[in-house]
Design a protein around this nucleic acid. Structure first.
Lengths: 231, 231
DNA sequence: CCTCGCCTTGACGAAATCTGTACGCCGGGC
DNA sequence: GCCCGGCGTACAGATTTCGTCAAGGCGAGG
């Protein structure tokens, strides 16, 4: 089951090892973050100045400027979330990094999930309101950030799968989503060719969010192709 | 109705087990991908160097070079999509593969549909398709990406075949499309000599998108030859 | 161990779509 | 004016796809 936890937030990643850079890029992309990358401290500072990201992940050892120094200079003008990467779990280095303004300190090797979790925690501190908009249509109110759905003020309870499905539809509102695309996004690639499960959840979702007795206004079906959320 | 999900993209597949190689070949061919195959890491690297494919699917265990090493060497010079195959779902191996630059990691046994779905996702990341533009003509608005059609702001519902037909016409707007060409594109080669089906759908399409009482402005007939979408 | 909520699956009637036939229309050739 | 080939439209049967419901599995929590 894929999640779009990153919203549209931009992350600056800086490391001199191409493999690490690439691994970071893949992990973060998969979680819906936007990426700006740099291989030296100077590049990182320039990139951040040019287009301020929401967070930065910076390796401690860089060819030119020390990662801690990069961190300090960013802090001079920005409140962005900063995570420092290091190969060694040296306690003293860690303290220096935090003193320089880092929000967190991650030692390599790290698992992708751990990194994303720490990044999110850091983002939550520095940028508490991710800009996921509240979507309104036909008296329905979907707040993707708060994970709530209301119909005429009354809160509606959705199960995890139902909400995930609604999220994908809402994020692509107006656009037709094929069965295949929905299945891959919500259930994962294994379910790409299992339309029955999709039908079941669409039925549940409609029973909960559409007006009890009336035509379909929110989720429209295109027979033989897919579904769309009308915006 | 034929699908050409693979486009003309070339996929390099590399595995030492002939059955797996064969299975991959069949699945990918069926989806319209072109295939280059190799049974050793060296062969794979040579083949990729000779004629760079759009993506590579590489088994982890190979007679000569480790699959991860193959992946790393490809990454030295190419941004192609890379998927690593493995018999075991070892989390550590997975991380190593992603670090080495793989885009995704699939464990055997895998369903054909899952593999194709993951391959398409990987291709989408590495080689994003240019966005399809919105086409406007005589108050009609066709958004090929969102799969929507509007006439003076009012949304028009098209069936799958109607939309497919319109898509082919719009993509070649101004250009004359022969009956034969339209039939092959929309219905597949079997229908190349069946103009009646085409006439029926053209009639439906016109009833929906042309102005109710007025001359044809959008789809013009070239008697004895074909149709064209006037832009 | 039981209960509860959630997800999946299969079956069946209902709806949408596709295909092929029938028939009327139009323009060119004679 | 008449014939004829190609075209446009309406319609009906066949086929595919959808919506709904009930039954069963699975896992969390008590």
């Amino acid at each position: 089951m894929t999640r779009q936890r990153g919203g549209d937030r931009q992350i600056l990643i800086c490391d001199d090892e191409p493999q690490i850079l690439r691994a970071l890029r893949l992990v973060l992309r998969a979680d819906g973050f936007g990426i700006v990358q740099a291989t030296t401290g100077r590049e990182a500072l320039d990139a951040a100045a040019l287009r301020p990201p929401h967070a930065a992940i910076i390796d401690l050892v860089l060819p030119d400027i020390d990662g801690i120094e990069v961190c300090r200079r960013l802090r001079e003008w920005s409140e962005m979330a900063i995570i420092v990467l290091s190969a060694v779990g040296d306690e003293e280095e860690k303290v220096r990094a935090l003193r320089a303004g880092a929000d967190d300190y991650v030692t390599k090797p790290f698992g992708p999930d751990e990194l994303v979790a720490r990044l999110q925690a850091a983002l939550r501190r520095s940028d508490p309101e991710p800009p996921e908009p509240v979507v309104r249509a036909d008296g329905l109110e979907v707040d993707l950030a708060a994970r709530t759905v209301r119909r005429d003020g009354e809160e509606i309870h959705l199960t995890p799968t139902e909400f995930e499905l609604l999220r994908v539809l809402v994020r692509n509102r107006g656009r037709l989503m094929t069965h295949r695309a929905l299945l891959v996004e919500v259930w994962g690639p294994r379910y790409a060719e299992e339309p029955t499960v999709l039908r079941g959840q669409i039925a549940n979702l409609r029973r909960k969010i559409e007006r009890p007795d009336g035509p379909r206004r929110l989720i429209r079906t295109d027979s033989g192709v897919g579904y769309r959320f009308v915006g």
